[in-house]
Amino acid sequence: MSEHPKQLLLVGAGAIGQLIAHQWQCAKLPIVTLPRSPSPHADFFDYHFRDYQSARTELCRIPIINDSDFSSIQAVFIAVKAYDLESVFRRLDTLGVPHDRPIICAHNGLVDLTTSRPCYTWITTHGVTRSNRVTEHKGLGSDWIDARIQHHQQLTEQLHTAFPKLHFDADIKARQWQKFCLNCVINPLTAVNQCLNGELLKEQYHEQRRMLVSELVSLSQALGYRLNTADLLVLVEQVCEATAENQSSMLSDIKANRKTEIKALTGYALKKAAELGVNLPTHAALYHQFNQLYLR
């Protein structure tokens, strides 16, 4: 190993970021994190983590990088809300993180972001929640990453080590859009109804689920994505079942009085629909209901 090992820089140590860090550290790979607010007295970011179906809670520690020298950073993993992406990229520029370092982006919503940095989308369907200061991996899912990242050989080897079941997807944009559609159904519905993901499988939500999915398929087809209502409905139900005991990120944000990604999800879908002349009345009604409840 070299004197200065190539490290992964984690930006955004929330629920998904902590899951990524936990798996990375379990593989004995070097990782550091960049705190939202720099503190000269903090050397580690500590969190409590409970792995899937485990009764044991671990105290985990991620070293905090307070050095101005980012030459040891091999790649950056950004796990923040969609609305924070632009500010994170500005911060990387300000700090002098080398421009050629690959950036892995994991976020729920969609934003129109322009950057010359090499960026690779990460998609996950794992269910992770935070409560009582414990982050818990509550639902098994899958992970996908843009296959183009395989040009970075050492990083690809590390990804294989930390995530043995990681899928390298040559059509990550379609995968990202599919995940976006899932989130546009599950997140606002659970937030408005204050329920866990699995509760959306109840009969009382069946027709609304179907209408939300049908409208998203119309938008998808207008954008050139090949989706059909039956398949997307099955996917929504599979995710709700696999993460039945999970609280969606949007509902978690509501309960913690944090800003949500509603604009990067339903808001983005409505924006694209308006541009293309596609009607999304069920999504518009849900968006209005959400705003009436939470954006006072």
Rank of each mutant, 00 (worst) to 15 (best):
Glu237Asn: 10
Glu237Gln: 12
Ala106Arg: 05
Asp93Ala: 15
Gln176Pro: 06
Ile254Thr: 05
Thr33His: 11
Lys202His: 15
Ile103Gln: 02
Thr229Pro: 07
Ile31Tyr: 04
Leu29Pro: 01
Glu261Thr: 06
Glu261Gly: 01
Thr125Ala: 05
Leu212Cys: 12
Trp24Gln: 03
Leu9His: 04
Ala55Trp: 02
Gly96Arg: 11
Phe44Ser: 07
Ala15Arg: 08
Thr33Cys: 09
Gln153Met: 13
Gln23Glu: 15
Ala284Leu: 15
Val88Tyr: 03
Ala13Thr: 06
Ile172Gln: 06
Gly12Ala: 10
Leu270Ile: 08
Glu3Gln: 10
Gln178Ile: 00
Glu136Ala: 00
Ile186Gln: 03
Val88His: 02
Ala170Gln: 15
Phe49Gly: 03
Asn291Ser: 13
Asp100Leu: 11
Arg61Lys: 15
Ala284Asn: 14
Asp46Lys: 08
Ser142His: 05
Val111Trp: 01
Val234Ile: 12
Ala42Cys: 09
Tyr205Ala: 10
Asp46Cys: 04
Lys28Pro: 08
Gln18Val: 12
Arg91Cys: 04
His99Met: 12
Glu86Cys: 07
Phe44Arg: 01
Lys202Met: 15
Gln247Met: 07
Arg210Leu: 15
Cys184Asp: 10
Asn187Gln: 09
Gln153Cys: 12
Tyr268Asp: 02
His206Glu: 15
Glu245His: 01
Val239Ile: 07
Asp43Thr: 02
Arg133His: 10
Leu265Arg: 01
Thr33Asn: 01
His107Ile: 03
Asn197Ser: 05
Glu261Met: 11
Gln158Asp: 13
Ser220Ala: 10
His167Gly: 06
Gly96Asp: 11
Phe49Val: 00
Leu280Thr: 07
Tyr268Ala: 06
Phe180Gln: 10
Val213Gln: 03
Leu295Ile: 12
Thr282Asp: 05
Gln221Met: 12
Cys195Pro: 00
Ala264Trp: 08
Phe163Ile: 13
Lys272Val: 06
Glu275Asp: 14
Gln292Leu: 15
Leu155His: 07
Gln25Arg: 01
Asn228Thr: 15
Ile65His: 01
Ile262His: 05
Val97Phe: 01
Gln289Met: 11
Trp24Thr: 04
Ala273Pro: 08
Lys6Arg: 14
Leu212Phe: 14
Gln7Phe: 07
Ala27Arg: 01
Val217Gly: 08
Ile65Val: 14
Thr57Asn: 03
Asn279Cys: 13
Leu159Glu: 11
Leu212Ile: 14
Trp177Ile: 00
Leu270Ala: 12
Thr33Phe: 02
Leu189Asp: 06
Ala13Leu: 12
Ile149His: 03
Ser214Thr: 14
Ile262Cys: 03
Phe163Ala: 07
Leu280Trp: 10
Gln74Pro: 11
Ser72Gln: 14
Thr125Ile: 00
Asp112Gln: 13
Asp84Thr: 08
Gln247Lys: 10
Arg36Phe: 09
Phe180Lys: 05
Val88Phe: 05
His99Tyr: 13
Ile16His: 02
Phe45Thr: 13
Ile254His: 01
Gln53Leu: 13
Asp231Leu: 14
Glu261Tyr: 03
Ala13Met: 09
Pro5Met: 07
Lys6Asn: 12
Asn66Cys: 05
His167Asn: 08
Lys6His: 06
Leu8Pro: 02
Pro35Gln: 08
Gly198Tyr: 00
Lys28Asn: 09
Leu189Gln: 15
Leu286Glu: 09
Pro98Ser: 12
Lys272Met: 10
Phe77Gln: 04
Ile145Gly: 05
Asn246Lys: 00
Cys119Thr: 11
Ala21Trp: 04
Tyr83Gln: 10
His22Gln: 10
Thr94Glu: 05
Gln53Val: 05
Leu270Thr: 08
